[in-house]
Amino acid sequence: MAPLIVVLAGGEGRRMGGEKPLRLLGGETLVDRALRRARHWSDEVRLALRTPEQVPNPGVPILLDDPDVWGPLAGLANALREARRTGRTHVLTLPCDVPFLPDDLLSRLQAAIGDEAVAMAESDGQLHPVCALWSVGVLDRLASYRAAGRRSLKGLAQDAGMVLVDWPEEAFVNVNTPADLAEAERRLRSEV
């Protein structure tokens, strides 16, 4: 069974000047690009947002971030609850601002996870905690993790037990600034 996939798009995008999910790359918004990729991998796709106004009419169900939970952990928490509710055993988290995700991301993470709670992408020793496959059982650890004042996805994955899966660095180029977006546009044109 395919995992539930949640595209994380609830950040403020300050370095981009706001509204990062709606920025265009190759004539398509960053969030639409991420949702298209997610639909390729699963029939259960959700969009994690801080407020519904961040992405009007996304075409998939929205999971609103819990205001008491910080950052991507909020999107993951709701996604794990939603996966449990829909009978899915795993959640794949994808950021909306990493437009060149590898085609084999899901298949390699699924092949690697085994008995671990999390399979996480890495490149050149850098972890990519928002590009990870999470067992729904991680939800059972979340309350105590948060109660201890912890809030990073990486820390949660380490606490739950994880395996790392390595890719080349260019697969996880993050678009955070207008300059990053311009570089991504150049890369997209060169790949077409």
Rank of each mutant, 00 (worst) to 15 (best):
V6N: 00
V7M: 10
V7K: 03
A9H: 00
M16D: 02
M16V: 07
G17V: 06
E19S: 14
E19H: 11
L25G: 02
L25W: 07
L25A: 02
L25D: 00
T29S: 11
D32E: 14
S42R: 14
D43V: 08
E44N: 13
R50N: 05
Q54D: 03
P58G: 09
V60P: 03
I62Q: 01
P67Q: 08
W70I: 08
G71M: 14
P72E: 08
G75W: 02
A79R: 00
R84H: 12
G87D: 09
L92R: 00
T93R: 02
T93M: 10
L94A: 06
P95W: 01
P95E: 11
P95Q: 04
C96A: 10
D97Y: 04
D97C: 07
P99Q: 11
L105M: 15
R108H: 14
L109V: 06
Q110E: 12
A111C: 06
E122W: 02
G125S: 11
Q126L: 09
L127Y: 09
H128P: 01
C131F: 07
L133T: 09
W134P: 01
S135A: 13
S144D: 13
A147G: 12
A147Q: 13
G149Y: 08
G149N: 15
R151H: 07
S152F: 03
K154Y: 14
K154S: 11
G155Q: 12
G161W: 06
G161T: 08
M162I: 04
D166P: 02
V175T: 02
N176Q: 14
N176S: 12
P178D: 15
D180A: 10
A184G: 02
R186S: 07
R187K: 06
R187W: 07
L188F: 08
L188T: 04
R189C: 04
R189K: 12
S190R: 13
V192A: 09
